[in-house]
Design a protein around this nucleic acid. Structure first.
Length: 455
DNA sequence: CTGCGACAGGCGAAGTAACC
DNA sequence: GGTTACTTCGCCTGTCGCAG
């Protein structure tokens, strides 16, 4: 059971792009679905026995099964069976639905009030025995509830930027939903932004349908993304003085109702809020210094970050630093919060590199070869598949942009005009063309000769 | 003079927490 | 369930200093 759960989580994390052929067979035939359910149930008698069960549990289960069958029938109508009936089984559904093991206690990162703790425990208990799909994909739980489930059942899903594949599936699902319900784009916007009371069910069905079609993100994340996608179509880009004036007057009139302000300005609420905070509010105290950080400024930043972190009890090299507080404490004309945050990460990174016997600067002969070896170790079919964010490690920690930049430079300088078809051949060619250390002159600054970067 | 590395700035997407 | 606040990160561009 645990292996199946692991496989399922892996499938969620790696996403359908790793197994595109089988993915497109979604949804499964009802028989497979039902049989998977039965198997999951058989496997998990022990887990089921541990679960709290109400007196009329059997009736509830029967009603739930009936509801699920109805939902499945509706879903099958929306997603007709795949054209190729001989397609390989779906990775996700070969493992799902599964009944999760009893939750392992994990350290909580935040304290809840007693009534919140009670609500959390009850919410988590209600979901015992449910499938990953039911917990993550079908319901639009808001972030706090989703966090409770994630913590209690060790759930995981894809985060970060949406891949083109995910975007395509979301768009296709939206189109399909509109076709199925004969909705125009305007009607769809109406449903998304200003649904009528009688559209509640349709509204839920919409997000469920898209989340199941995307498959790799929680219903809630899907909802947020689709909304931002459709809203940002309105307008983005450069802020003119007129835009800034309009924003200022809108904030004066509406306060921090960013959704309304965004609607008025034709931009997303998030963008208006961010621009306001970064560009206008943070500069009330005066013009921010431009250009490189002065050593005194770096020292002041270091002192302030350490003091504020000690005050609120967080690690200065950890996540979620109190930047608003740091920004406030830094004095009359600080730089913008995003600049300070990025500068601090850069300082930490440079510090780690210099203390770990790693070059403070990229040393082409050695670091180029290390980069090539690490890319090769990923065993990708093409350069487009390289996962640059997974190349760094504690003993070779370069910022992502540095790694990407050196890859691009290497390609430009060393790749043949007609690059070979396979990534392996390209890597071979590059490795032959990157000179050895002896052929290079030592870089003038920042390098420590004789370090042992075997990686 | 040119190429390159480093890094700040601009803009925006996304995740998490908290609140209503 | 919906919104806001806060934080982090990605991508692109421009600028500056240094070495060849």
């Amino acid at each position: 059971m645990e292996q199946r759960a692991q496989r399922a989580r892996q499938a969620i994390l790696s996403g359908p792009s790793l197994d595109g052929a089988s993915w497109h067979a979604w949804p499964p035939a009802a028989e497979e679905h039902a049989s998977a359910k039965r198997v999951a149930g058989d496997d998990d008698d022990m887990a089921l026995a541990k679960r709290p069960r109400s007196d009329d549990g059997a009736a509830v289960v029967a009603a739930t099964v009936e509801q699920q069958q109805q939902a499945l029938a509706a879903m099958r109508e929306l997603h007709p069976p795949p054209f190729d009936q001989h397609a390989p089984p779906i990775v996700l559904d070969a493992s799902l639905p599964f009944v999760l093991e009893a939750p392992a206690p994990t350290p909580r990162t935040r304290k809840l009030r007693p009534e919140q703790e009670k609500a959390r425990a009850s919410f988590v208990a209600q979901h015992a025995g449910q499938t990953y799909e039911q917990m993550v994909l079908e319901h639009a739980y808001s972030s706090d509830r989703l966090y409770w489930l994630k913590e209690a059942y060790q759930l995981s899903w894809r985060t970060g930027r949406w891949s083109a594949d995910e975007e395509d599936r979301a768009t296709a699902a939206l189109d399909k939903f509109c076709q199925h319900h004969q909705l125009s784009q305007a009607a769809l916007d109406e449903l998304i932004w200003h649904r009528r009371p009688d559209q509640k069910q349709l509204h839920e069905e919409l997000w469920k349908h898209i989340a199941l079609s995307v498959g790799t993100r929680p219903n809630y994340a899907v909802r947020m993304h689709i909304k931002s996608m459709r809203k940002d179509v309105l307008r983005g880009g450069h802020w003119t003085p007129e835009d800034v004036a309009a924003l200022t007057s809108a904030v004066a009139e509406l306060g921090h109702q960013w959704e309304k302000i965004g609607t008025r300005l034709g931009r997303s609420g998030n963008v208006c809020k961010h621009f306001w905070r970064e560009q206008i509010q943070s500069r009330k105290a005066g013009p921010a210094p431009q250009g490189a950080f002065h050593p005194d400024e770096e020292e002041a930043l270091r002192r302030t970050v350490l003091a504020c972190c000690a005050e609120v009890g967080c690690a200065p090299d950890g996540p979620n630093l109190p930047w608003t507080l740091i920004h406030e404490r830094l004095g009359p004309s600080p730089r913008r919060i995003s600049v300070l945050s990025r500068k601090w990460r850069g300082m930490l990174s440079a510090e780690r590199r210099s203390s770990d016997e790693q070059n403070a600067r990229w040393y082409a002969p050695r670091d180029d070869h290390i980069l090539l070896r690490r890319i090769r170790a990923q065993r990708k079919a093409s350069a487009a598949d390289i996962e640059f964010d997974k190349l760094a490690s504690p003993d070779w920690q370069w910022p992502l942009y540095v790694i990407k930049k050196h890859w691009v430079v290497m390609l430009r300088k060393r790749a043949p005009p007609d690059p070979p078809a396979s990534l392996d051949e390209l890597l071979d060619t590059l490795a032959r063309r990157v000179p050895s250390a002896d052929q290079y002159k030592m870089l003038a600054s920042g390098r420590r000769p004789g370090t042992t970067a075997s990686r």
